[in-house]
Design a binder for these strands. Structure first.
Lengths: 200, 200
DNA sequence: GTCTATAGACGGATAGAC
DNA sequence: GTCTATCCGTCTATAGAC
């Protein structure tokens, strides 16, 4: 009861290894070694590597849904909830600086491999996208709510990629502040194009 | 004379394959097949796969330098030059939507592999960063020129990642317009935090 | 400089004992 | 459910003929 099933342990280990090393670079031996079972026993639970990938994607989808539901319940205002999303960059800063964003790096890798599960991995993005979109709609942005959601996603992805490349913690903090300021201006409803950020 | 040396052909083929398939997923056979030489002959030119990687990085570095020099010569104003950079997202849209940004995806992959050439790959980013920084300095932004350069880089990376994930051409065009507007507001020198983008 | 042949390690995947 | 043993393919890399 207290112990997770072997299957769940495999999925959990594979999830982390796919994130840290990449999907292709992670071998059955790597996962088996982490879970401390033999390679052969592996195939009792999953017939192919692609099945493990799909299981990992499913796990990420439900984990993300749970997290978004929690934010929905906890955040007082739509703006608070959007800031919860932006804060991922701070909360997971250490991991992101080493391995990037789990969602962005996996969809990119699967795209290059031409892997059939790429659309599945992308669904995690879609989960965030629709959730963010609803928050912007709650802010009265009916027309461009989806564009604003995509904009927030893109900013986060860009910060993640560059933080992995340069390993600059201050850069992450600065950009998070920028996104806070940008969000404030969206709420104010300032007309016209984006104006000059402060870049403290 | 008209034909490039075998070595240059190998580097060129490897460059494309690393971009399209990823570094690790590209085998010597893949490269040899493209150049139409035998696998064995390969080792006359490069002793290890890592050597090919370093050669590809060097080629990208000099290619980037040449491009930046050309932009420097062609662009009338610093703003024109920065727009040349932003326009990569439009000019290379088809490739970016399929394979992402060559620089961002390579540095991310090498980071995950813990590859010793990761800092080398990152130098391509640094080339863009310093170049952009100089353009912002020319606009009178001495203090935060580097932060602005990193901001532009991050925005581009984010758009590249999400365009690969969703394959949405309109999203790319929209975000490029946003960056244009943002740049205009930086030049105007508007005080205060970033204001509300239009999101047409 | 280009080729063939091959070594040696490791990948995913299977069969069958316990 | 877990194990060992094994197959087959592909990978990097080497040796040596032409």
């Amino acid at each position: 009861m207290g112990n997770k099933s072997t299957r769940d342990q495999i999925v959990e280990a594979a999830d982390l290894l796919f994130y840290h090393q990449g999907f292709e670079h992670t071998s059955f031996s790597d996962i088996a070694g982490t879970v401390k079972i033999s390679r052969g026993n592996f195939y009792y639970h999953f017939k192919t590597k692609d099945q493990i990938l799909d299981a990992v994607i499913d796990a990420r989808l439900s984990k993300t849904e749970t997290m978004l539901d929690a934010w929905e319940a906890a955040g007082d205002t739509p703006a608070d909830r959007i800031r919860s999303f932006i804060d991922i960059l701070i909360v997971n800063k250490a991991d992101i600086m080493r391995f990037g964003c789990p969602v962005g790096t996996m969809t990119t890798e699967l795209s290059k491999l031409g892997h059939p599960s790429q659309p599945g991995a992308c669904r995690v993005f879609t989960l965030f996208r629709l959730w963010l979109r609803r928050q912007f709609e709650a802010l009265g942005r009916g027309e461009d709510a989806d564009a604003l959601a995509m904009h927030v996603l893109a900013r986060s992805q860009g910060v993640a990629t560059l933080s992995t490349a340069f390993g600059d913690e201050d850069f992450v903090r600065r950009e998070v502040q920028e996104m806070y300021d940008w969000l404030a201006s969206v709420i104010e409803g300032t007309e016209g194009p984006a104006s000059n950020p402060t870049h403290h």
